[in-house]
């Protein structure tokens, strides 16, 4: 089975890192994965996004027409990508910043205040981990513990070990709230 998710938000909301952690977790879980960032000029000011594909077979296209998942960190992301979602797809919406619900009635939507949950985890900048936790619960694509291990290792390798605890807490906040 192949699953794919577009993670989208403002530049600075950490969507690129959330995608990398998901891809790493998928790989650690024995899946084939691709991670593709939007690297065009749209990253400055507009929406940033990345696409992660996870499959038990070799991944063909890293670009997807109909993703099975969407993490919308802000309103423009939901507006831009909702229509693309596959039927029965999963959409996780940051209700702290998105003032509408999904138009589609053939997708499974989860609304959570990422900004509030990140703040209660102890650091408002962990909204990407809250979002990832919520998506993991909604999609079941990789186990929470695998994602936490992948995230901890990646933070450690980039010399940010002191951020591991708060990010673990944030990913759990999102997972448990979803």
């Amino acid at each position: 089975m192949e699953r794919s998710v577009i993670i989208a938000g403002f530049g600075g909301q950490g969507v690129i890192l959330a995608g990398k952690i998901l891809a790493q977790a998928g790989m650690d879980d024995g899946l084939e994965v691709t991670w593709l960032p939007s690297y065009g000029p749209e990253m400055r000011g507009g929406t940033a996004n990345c696409t992660v594909v996870l499959s038990d077979e070799p991944v063909g296209s890293p670009i997807v027409d109909q993703p099975t998942g969407l993490i919308a960190m802000n309103r423009p992301s939901l507006d831009k990508f909702e229509a693309m979602l596959a039927t029965d797809g999963v959409v996780v919406v940051n209700s702290s910043l998105v003032d509408r619900t999904a138009d589609r009635d053939d997708v499974r939507a989860t609304y959570l205040p990422f900004n509030d949950l990140a703040a209660s985890a102890g650091n408002p900048r962990t909204i990407n981990m809250v979002a990832l936790g919520a998506y993991l619960k909604a999609s079941g694509v990789v186990p929470l513990e695998t994602a936490k291990r992948a995230m901890s290792r990646m933070l450690e390798e980039s010399g940010k070990s002191k951020l591991i605890d708060v990010n673990c807490k944030a990913i759990e906040e999102g997972y448990n709230a979803a």
Binding site: K20, M27, E32, V33, T34, W35, L36, Y39, P62
Partner: peptide
């Protein structure tokens, strides 16, 4: 090409 250069894969 730019896509191959930018994307990550195991």
């Amino acid at each position: 090409d730019g896509l191959l250069g930018q994307m990550m894969e195991p």
